[in-house]
Design a protein around this nucleic acid. Structure first.
Lengths: 354, 354
DNA sequence: GCCGTTTTGAGTATCGTACATCAAAATCGG
DNA sequence: CCGATTTTGATGTACGATACTCAAAACGGC
């Protein structure tokens, strides 16, 4: 509750330049510096330049903490996530909730908006429903459809910074994408499954929807590496399970029955429960190596019991926090610390479960 | 330079409680609330409790930005890293440098102190040389020796928060350890190498020093899993290469020559260059799978060229930033956001290089 | 109930910035 | 070169806290 240091060691700062220093250096008044700094009208271009030069010379950096204190500014961000029972989306929602309680201290307010999954028009409508006067930044798990791209463009035009999260819409006006490189993720899955399947055979690929850019990219990466580096394996046409465990289970069961010689399974979407169920229902046969995505509770226990061999994961918490940091930087007009913001592709096996 | 939003949307805060609200609620003056908040003397216990209750009732959270602004407080942190040519230490040093330029905005000053490697007394001396009046927090890559443990205890006693980084000293008074779980890392390496080596054989283990807790723990995790789950493999006694490429190369070359039937190599310390060199010098033979630690530039190119199969990595940047966040929270007397601070064990293969 | 000692209250200045107001100065058109 | 119109300066208040001082009030012991 109270600080443990008791303020014992309050020490003076290294004395970095303030607006007053800039004013003195530029030979103008504080008011003028303030006008330049906050882009208020009534400053001649020459004067503005003198101020800008003075700032550059002194290496002035505006103290955002003081500025925000004075402005009573709150950073208001919305996260648009798909509703439904998909575990990973749940993890994202939880991550937003957890993060919110910590960012509120820094005047960052987070709001979650749920939208129907796989539904471009609905997502676009949700984006349009956001009031630019009440929101400074948005992170959206994008379906890569024209409606969504347009809605993103409208929102950006109205001064709201938009980020895509987890699944990108590269040709949209989004300021940035926060998430893993899904082509690389697919390649990684192939590198693992390729090594886990020494004998020749075919591989089942399960995906959610060809509308989701992340799924499409994973498939691309996966098939490329399998074809190039593991010629003893071949990929069956993907099953589209709509990220729904029941559908996935049914379709996969059917494929396992119909296709002989299945050497491995790669689920690049959600619905891991369906994978487990299909494998349980299967008539006896040699163990089939399985690589899936997202370390959900189900995937976790399947790893432990040995049904799954590896899980490719993206840390939902990291992604949310990264999105928050990037949006804040965009809103502040600051550069982002890119090295910090690259989301890494985590590989989990039974031995390194967190 | 200046914000792009032009302050267009300055909006009033949700109105969270301030010290004035607490004072009113508790029926005391501002001065008293301040005394309680900063643990200044001259407040009766009953009054302090009344204030604490009022804070709890209102859900008061001290505005750290405002407090720091007023205090002109700077968080001064020191990072004690091993000097030498070891690439991972270089990455840590670079990470400190990069982070410093971003944290200076938040009044966080970082300093790097280099100490000789594998030298408990020297590290202890470096810790003792820090002036508690000039440093609020320290992160140290610990050698787990009695001198170091004592020095950490002395520093903590003098009011400096101490964190161990990368390599822990669990029985010391360090407030916390920032780094990966090295037993798990060793197990993970075994899980990978075990699958990569289908044929029976022996495994070379290369470590830096038995003084480094992280190396000891990795070895433990590795040998446990190999023994339990991959009975066709057995581990040779570890080579101690002192994290030096030249030494590692020489000793490994000798072992490769002396021991027939080596099925795999696990380098759990630094000196990856030595591993590559020894493999190049080796008389022809079947390819030997290799798993190493830390994604240094050398390890990277060895992954690409196919000499290494997998690299277990800890992200130096994440670790430094996590250490900074935790130290800041400790200094502020705030709880830490633990979920955010667990450092994950990254597995890199050729296909998912960043 | 008096006296000396805590404990508490009230007020003020400060941090670095935002923002509004009013007056003074510079610039411009004609 | 005058009057109208920018552009600039000076000043004050606010943000939410810290940190002082000085005086008033409450407390404890005898």
């Amino acid at each position: 509750m109270t600080g443990r240091d008791g303020g014992r060691k309050a020490e003076q700062g290294a004395g970095r330049p303030t607006v007053r220093d800039v004013a003195r250096e530029a030979g103008v008044s504080l008011a003028t510096v303030d006008r330049v700094l906050n882009e208020r009208p009534g400053v001649r271009k020459v004067t503005a330049k003198r101020v800008a030069d003075a700032m550059a010379r002194l290496g002035y950096q505006r103290d955002m903490a003081a500025a925000n204190l004075s402005k009573r500014r709150h950073y208001r961000m919305a996260f648009l996530l798909a509703e439904g029972t998909n575990s990973f989306m749940h993890m994202l929602r939880d991550a937003v909730g957890n993060t919110a309680s910590f960012t509120s201290m820094d005047r960052i307010d987070l709001r979650t908006v749920l939208v129907p999954p796989f539904d471009g028009p609905a997502l676009a409508a949700a984006l349009d429903a956001l009031d630019p006067e009440e929101i400074d930044g948005v992170a959206v798990v994008a379906t890569d459809s024209p409606e969504v791209r347009d809605a993103i463009a409208r929102l950006s035009a109205r001064g709201v910074y938009v980020l895509t999260l987890v699944s990108d819409a590269p040709t949209s006006m989004r300021a940035r994408f926060v998430g893993i490189d899904n082509v690389v993720a697919g390649r990684t899955a192939a590198g693992l499954l390729g090594r886990f399947c020494p004998a020749p055979g075919r591989i089942c690929i399960v995906m959610g929807s060809a509308l989701l850019r992340d799924h499409v990219e994973r498939r691309l990466g996966f098939e490329t590496v399998i074809a190039r580096e593991y010629p003893h394996l071949s990929c069956l046409p993907p099953i589209e399970g709509r990220d729904d465990a029941e559908t996935v289970g049914r379709l996969l069961s059917a494929q396992l029955k119909a296709e002989p010689g299945i050497a491995g399974i790669y689920n690049l979407g959600a619905g891991n429960r369906g994978i487990v169920r299909a494998l349980e229902e299967r008539a006896a046969g040699p163990r089939i190596p399985v690589v899936v995505h997202e370390l959900t509770p189900y995937a976790r226990s399947a790893l432990i019991s040995g049904v799954f061999d590896a899980v490719i994961n993206q840390d939902a918490g990291h992604e949310i926090r990264s999105a928050v940091r990037i949006l804040k930087a965009l809103i502040d007009g600051r550069p982002t610390f890119d090295a910090q913001e690259s989301i890494c592709i985590d590989i989990y096996m039974r031995d390194n479960l967190p």
